[in-house]
Design a protein around this nucleic acid. Structure first.
Lengths: 190, 190, 190, 190
DNA sequence: AATTAACCGAGACGGTACGTCCCGTCTTATC
DNA sequence: GATAAGACGGGACGTACCGTCTCGGTTAATT
């Protein structure tokens, strides 16, 4: 996108990058609760107004800082074996939600979305999890010949692990092989 | 349970009730984000210290204020027809998560838990959702003769709806009849 | 003064003593600014109400706790030599104001009196300094045959040292011999 | 004096003035005891942090708010007649201590200084009373040819009135003509 | 001996100021 | 005209103390 006439000083790309890096670092170091716009600006060596000029709240900065990493971590290649692919995806999903920095950011944002409609809209506009599962879900639907919609199938796939992690259960307990098996069974037509 | 030695002025039950009522009211009126300890105390006509004396943060007050309502709203009676009971439970669950005040409180707490370990512990200690599903899950497991553990079955039951709601999808779209059907199918042994 | 009928439990003398001791100790340990009614009661092992029952504010407790010591420290015997007696009194006065615990209490009370009328009344009712100087002033007035009133002479005697100490000057610098000399000269008739 | 690099928003002169005015007003309206940093900020229409940014406690604000007035009220012109000048100064001093707003501030600060070392330092750094008396004291010393130091003479001059007022006596009783006379007599060499 | 009444300790109560932190906005000089 | 710096008005935080109250328990003098 072109920046109008180009008059005046152009946006500093280095400032943008510094902010996104600062958010990444601070999220790990101090956690989401202690992540402040003030702290981000200072860590990035950037004026406070510069942050506000490009992002309207910390959720937006965090979203932009983590969405690329999130997509990468959740990407799985299709092997042709639907059940194996589903299991691989579930493993990636759980690793993302419980051990990844980008996953921590996602959980924080999803948490914030529960009481901030702006953040809810931001997340709903492009749901990272749903996007990441689309290919696997499509393959599984095709393989099973299910009558379920993609949306329904996605909820069946992601929901159980999502619930276990978000509601605070230990993630090691999740048997992804069994989960993949039950998912395929649920998909199947009668 | 005895409250220590009984020395000193006893805790004021009316103050306790006033605080819990104030939290309930304020959550509806101003939302979780604008819910402050200061606001709660003032609305309750209670000293600030009195709130801090009995609850260490707003999550604890909110939990105590909503847990009883939550249990009531999620209670379903067993009819003997497992599939019908599951569907009734899912309807209650979705209504709770999307339309109930207690459910709004639960979602706010679950959100807070994603970036506050104290709140996470509080919720994990007695998971309202898991508790509420225990009887239905047990009945469904018995009816299906499944090899799945109760924990796994609970995640299968709650997860899909939970994911749809928490990640911001419209709740009316959820076909609980289909979901109950798929749940029973997933439980079934091969 | 008799306490009415004497019915009911009599005042606990040990509680009274414990409070006064606690005030003395705390004044030295934490200073006047950090001296609180709560702290006094706890240090004395006494209920808060018990303190309030007998003294209406911390100034009153402090006054009662220090007035006896103050009188003792400021007592000087008359030798017959007015100038020498005056000098001895000034030495005692400066020691009291700068090095004594009771003097610290007096200065704190006098400070409080500058912005609390109740404390001002308390101090004015029986001015410790003026009382202590009465005998010496009388002797000096008699020896000099001055036309000055006792009040005026007292102010001439105490004022200079009082000002030096209260306004924060170093006390060692005060030449009490010279001061005594000038005082006698000021008293003398023309 | 230069204020660093000049970067950033400069200090708001209007905020500074508003705070000092608020202190002046509040001291008269509610008295020193009820003078709070919170109240000052609110009355000035200023953020709390803005007050703390420039003054570390209410004593500092009050000092800055009253010192200029104090100097004006205590200024006396020299006529050449030392005794008359001394009397004029004593009249001004007593009026300052007992009837002036700036004098009320000074007494409050001096009171605070008795139990707060920070305030004591603040007052000692530039003693308003001693400064104000310097010219008169010098003139009186020259006229009398005394051997007393300026410090000693100042204490002799100010002390008696200072003691009378601070220890709560009525100010109307002070005979400044007699006091000036005795002061000149005390100064005189033998 | 039983009753009565005031005192005792403990500690919770409604209030309010404290000093700190962060919010999002603004106003500088600099680039 | 965007930037780094940093002051601005505002407001919540969690703590401390205020002076009051309400308990159970104690200690006498009066019945």
């Amino acid at each position: 996108m072109v920046e109008g006439t180009g008059r005046g000083r152009p946006r500093s790309e280095s400032a943008r990058a510094a902010v996104l890096h600062a958010v990444d670092d601070l999220l790990v170091e101090v956690g989401y609760a202690a992540l402040t716009m003030k702290g981000i600006a200072e860590r990035a060596g950037v004026g406070r107004q510069t942050v506000y000029r490009w992002w309207s709240n910390k959720a937006e900065v965090l979203y932009e800082a983590s969405v690329t990493d999130a997509r990468q971590e959740l990407a799985v290649s299709l092997s042709g074996d639907a059940r194996a692919d589903v299991r691989a995806y579930l493993d990636a999903l759980i690793a993302f939600l419980t051990r990844s920095h980008a996953g921590a950011a996602y959980r924080a944002l999803l948490g914030e979305a529960q009481h901030d409609p702006d953040v809810a809209l931001l997340l709903a506009s492009r749901d990272i999890l749903e996007d990441s599962a689309a290919a696997i879900v499509e393959a599984a639907r095709a393989a099973s010949g299910t009558t379920l919609s993609a949306e329904e199938a996605t909820a069946l796939l992601i929901g159980p692990s999502f619930f276990r992690v978000l509601s605070g259960h230990r993630a090691e307990d999740i048997d992804t092989a069994a989960l993949a098996d039950r998912f395929m069974r649920a998909l199947a037509s009668p």
